[in-house]
């Protein structure tokens, strides 16, 4: 099956602007410290039509940046993203409406000065996906799809709670009739009770509209609940991908293992409370990523080769792909 969205060898680097003095110094041949942030490093990813891919990783691992590159908000520094064979960006600008985004913070992602109805209709009207005469009915239809009354169209974002705003943001993305929705931590800033509602909304919309989704989150529980496949990201690289249950049942990368072990469990089969293991050490700075496998500084199984050679993604013996020199065998 050909994938709907394909990210090929995508990298995203953020280079800080050098001052005039530093630029002159660089021209004169003196070594200038270039503090380039390697947010995404040579990532390839495929998302099939109708599937939900969960992208998991610690804060700062580059998952949001990868999501924004795939959504066409930031141009990649290298590589390209295609949807149905056509490039997502052309001449530095997004050239497709088939990918839409739902952001983390619904307080920031809605323009505070624009009424909800206008915010939802603006994109479709600008792209001729909706006729002006139908706008009101269409807006009401999308509001209904996300569980909001039609009167909400006349209100401003500040008149809504966080969960309601996130519904509005989802309606805005859906009104563009995308083939794929990039959800960047869509529930991370909501209360736990609201999180469940929004996750259920995603599941319902997926059932009804056959949505394809890239679901970015650091919450393993939610990702496990919603995703068909997951990709684990560590410091700009994908370290493991596979069917959700296969990865949860038998993680092959030491980082995935550690990530699964670090989930606190309150209810256990045994009597005593099981303590959880935090991963030792911290995420290294993306300003100066370690050579070789990025995880070797924190990996309990690290060998000399891990410090020197970047492990290639390998799907030996019919197992799901993993980028590790010494994959775990369970």
């Amino acid at each position: 099956m050909t994938p709907l969205v394909l990210a090929q060898n995508v990298s995203k680097r953020f280079a800080p602007r050098l001052g005039l003095g530093e630029r002159i110094a660089a021209k004169l041949g003196s070594p200038v410290e270039t503090r380039t942030v390697h947010a995404v490093d040579n990532v390839s990813l495929a998302i099939a039509k109708g599937e939900v891919l969960g992208l998991v990783g610690e804060s700062g691992c580059g998952k949001s940046t990868l999501g924004r590159v795939i959504a066409g908000i930031h141009p990649p520094s290298a590589g390209q993203v295609t949807i149905g064979g056509e490039s997502v960006m052309r001449e530095g600008r997004k050239s497709t409406t088939r990918i839409q985004t739902v952001f983390q913070d619904p307080f920031a992602s809605l323009d505070p000065r624009i009424r909800i109805g206008e915010a939802i209709a603006e994109g479709p009207l600008a792209h001729g996906l909706m006729r002006k005469a139908d706008a009101r009915a269409e807006v009401a239809r999308w509001l209904d799809a996300v569980g909001l009354p039609a009167e909400a169209a006349e209100r401003f974002p500040h008149q809504f709670s966080g969960g309601q705003r996130q519904r509005v943001a989802i309606a805005r993305a859906l009104a563009m009739q995308p083939d794929i929705l990039v959800c960047d931590e869509p529930v991370a800033s909501l209360d736990v009770s609201i999180q469940a509602q929004i996750v259920n909304l995603f599941l319902k919309l997926r059932r009804e509209l056959g949505l394809t989704m890239l679901f970015i989150s650091h919450d393993l529980g939610i990702v496990r609940h919603i995703s068909d496949r997951i990709a684990i990201m560590y410091l700009g690289r994908i370290v493991e991908t596979g069917e959700t249950e296969a990865v949860f049942a038998a993680p092959r990368h030491p980082y995935t293992r550690a990530l699964l072990d670090s989930v606190p469990k309150l209810v256990t089969d045994s009597e005593e409370l099981v303590s959880f293991k935090a991963i030792a050490g911290e995420l290294p700075s993306p300003l100066s990523p370690p050579p070789g496998c990025h995880f070797h500084l924190r990996c309990p199984h690290a060998q000399a080769v891990c410090r020197e050679i970047v492990p290639a993604s390998d799907s030996q013996g019919g197992m799901h792909p993993v980028a590790c020199h010494f994959p775990l065998i369970s």
Binding site: K94, S109, L110, A126
Partner: peptide, 14 residues
């Protein structure tokens, strides 16, 4: 740098 501008770029609007 606010998210609503990124949202507008994601639509994309001119």
């Amino acid at each position: 740098s606010k998210e609503y501008v990124e949202a507008a770029l994601s639509t994309p609007l001119s």
